[in-house]
């Protein structure tokens, strides 16, 4: 019977601890929680964005916390579920999030984000050379996008592929993959696992500067026209939670961020004002290729 007592003890322990745990979950203080899409180097995220959280906490006078998420979709869902109130989104994830949360707003973007670019890259064995015209010779080779929900690694490259090749990527290439993020796209094309790929120009530049790219193996063959990309989005109900004018104060804090170490986390030179309307082209493109209904 000792065994049964042990098991009954265990059941009581589970029940009790679940009770404690649910009550502890509800007594949380009003902390502003923010996140960022995992678009590149995902290690050291807490260290990088933890400093941004400290900066915002100091500027706003309330506790601010950063939570890491594993996917673009998780960032959008957390924003929608009010588990994060502020987010550093890509163009497409931001549009999706704001469609799902009425009243939410894009408040700031990187200076570079007004004229963002995707690079099409190729392994040397593909024989493709850099050109100003869209490289239609890519046909029937293997191609990898970045994350499925990425603007610069999926949406815009797919848009230009459809426009110039008049086919879906699956029809245009012999194999289509989704690497997961921009750094991984570069690595996969560099090893030749895929002959071609599309990546975010900022990530390409920082990987190049870090010495991770061998230009004899992989090179940029085409650059897309510019489009608006990353932005800070905030939920519409933050003013009722933290007081009138809170949204404006968050915006101000972001625009005034000038410590290069903080800006390096994004990486952007500085933040400027943004509005929802700036991202209308992204929404239109996403509807055109069927990524948003």
């Amino acid at each position: 019977m000792k065994l049964i007592t042990t098991s009954i003890n265990s059941i009581c322990a589970i029940a009790l601890s679940l009770m404690l745990f649910s009550s502890s979950a509800y007594s949380a203080p009003k902390t502003l929680v923010f996140s960022a899409i995992p678009d590149q180097d995902q290690s050291q995220l807490i260290k990088r964005f933890g400093k941004v959280a400290d900066y915002l906490a100091e500027k706003l006078g309330i506790p601010v916390r950063y939570v890491p998420v594993k996917s673009y979709a998780a960032a959008v869902t957390s924003f929608r579920n009010n588990q994060i109130q502020l987010a550093w989104f890509g163009g497409l994830s931001g549009v999706r999030a704001r469609l799902l949360v009425p009243g939410s707003e894009a408040i700031a973007q990187g200076e570079e984000d007004t004229r963002f670019v995707s690079y099409f890259i190729a392994h040397h064995s593909s024989g493709l050379k850099p050109s100003d015209d869209f490289p239609v010779a890519m046909e029937d080779k293997t191609f990898t996008f970045g994350s499925k929900g990425s603007t610069s690694g999926r949406l815009m490259p797919e848009f230009y592929i459809r426009e110039h090749m008049e086919k879906s990527p699956e029809q245009a290439f012999s194999r289509v993959g989704f690497s997961g993020n921009h750094s991984r796209t570069i690595a996969l094309v560099q090893t030749g696992a895929y002959q071609l790929g599309a990546t975010n120009y900022k990530v390409w530049e920082s990987e190049l500067a870090a010495g991770n790219i061998d230009l004899d193996k992989v090179s940029v063959i085409w650059k897309t026209p510019t489009y608006p990309d990353y932005q800070w989005s905030i939920r519409g109900d933050v003013d009722s939670e933290w007081g009138a004018g809170f949204k404006q104060r968050v915006k101000q804090a972001l625009l005034e961020m000038n410590d290069p170490e903080l800006l390096q986390a994004f990486p952007r030179s500085r933040f400027i004002e943004a509005t929802n309307d700036d991202y209308q082209p992204i929404l239109d493109t996403a509807r055109k290729i069927g990524l948003i209904d």
Partner: peptide, 17 residues
């Protein structure tokens, strides 16, 4: 086991609601 089960909820708890 009972000790582990008591401690575990505090380890996985976070402040999301």
């Amino acid at each position: 086991l009972p000790f582990y089960l008591l401690a575990a909820p505090f380890i996985i708890a976070n402040d999301s609601t």
